[in-house]
Amino acid sequence: MTLYEFNLLNLNDKMEAVNQYGTFLDNHVTTKERCNLYAIDMFFVEVVYNAEHNSITEIRSFKTGHLLAKYSNLDRTV
């Protein structure tokens, strides 16, 4: 699956693709949201959950960029 093909899917189909093809890499938790990072082929997918309602609010897909910074050990406070 390519990034372009993934981006054409609706929210439910994106989540199904993440479950079927995604490899879990990491998570990031704040007071407002929880994010899980997955890899599918040659791109990343970030599944964003509303922490209060425990529901998926957004699925972001990308190849590189600032969205990866929060998963870096350099960006985390210990």
Rank of each mutant, 00 (worst) to 15 (best):
M1V: 10
T2K: 00
L3R: 03
L3N: 03
L3T: 04
L3W: 02
Y4N: 06
Y4A: 07
Y4M: 04
E5F: 08
F6L: 01
F6N: 03
F6Q: 04
L8F: 06
L8P: 00
L8Q: 10
L8W: 04
L9T: 04
L9R: 10
L9M: 10
N10H: 11
N10S: 05
L11H: 13
L11A: 09
L11N: 07
N12H: 02
D13K: 11
D13I: 02
K14D: 00
M15K: 13
M15E: 00
E16N: 08
V18N: 08
N19F: 04
Q20G: 02
Q20T: 11
Y21I: 00
G22I: 06
T23F: 02
T23V: 12
T23N: 08
T23E: 15
T23S: 02
F24S: 13
F24T: 04
D26R: 00
H28G: 06
H28A: 11
T30A: 09
T30M: 10
T31P: 03
T31G: 05
K32E: 15
R34C: 11
R34Y: 12
R34K: 14
C35S: 14
C35D: 13
N36G: 10
N36H: 15
L37F: 07
L37P: 01
L37A: 03
L37Y: 03
Y38I: 06
A39S: 15
A39K: 12
I40V: 02
I40A: 00
I40Q: 01
I40W: 00
D41S: 15
D41I: 13
M42I: 12
M42R: 14
M42N: 15
F43S: 11
F43Q: 13
F43G: 07
F44A: 03
F44C: 09
V45A: 02
E46K: 05
E46L: 08
E46F: 05
V47I: 01
V48C: 09
V48D: 03
V48I: 15
N50S: 14
N50W: 01
N50C: 06
A51R: 07
A51M: 07
H53I: 08
H53Q: 12
H53C: 06
N54G: 04
S55C: 09
S55A: 12
I56M: 10
I56K: 09
I56T: 07
I56F: 06
I56R: 08
I56E: 06
T57Y: 03
T57F: 04
T57A: 07
E58L: 14
E58T: 09
I59M: 11
R60I: 07
R60Y: 01
S61Q: 11
F62T: 03
F62D: 04
F62R: 01
K63M: 13
K63G: 08
T64P: 03
T64F: 02
L67G: 04
L68A: 03
A69L: 15
A69C: 10
A69Q: 15
K70Q: 14
Y71F: 15
Y71P: 06
Y71C: 04
Y71W: 03
Y71D: 02
N73R: 11
N73E: 08
L74Y: 13
D75H: 14
D75N: 14
R76S: 12
R76H: 12
T77Y: 12
T77Q: 12
V78H: 10
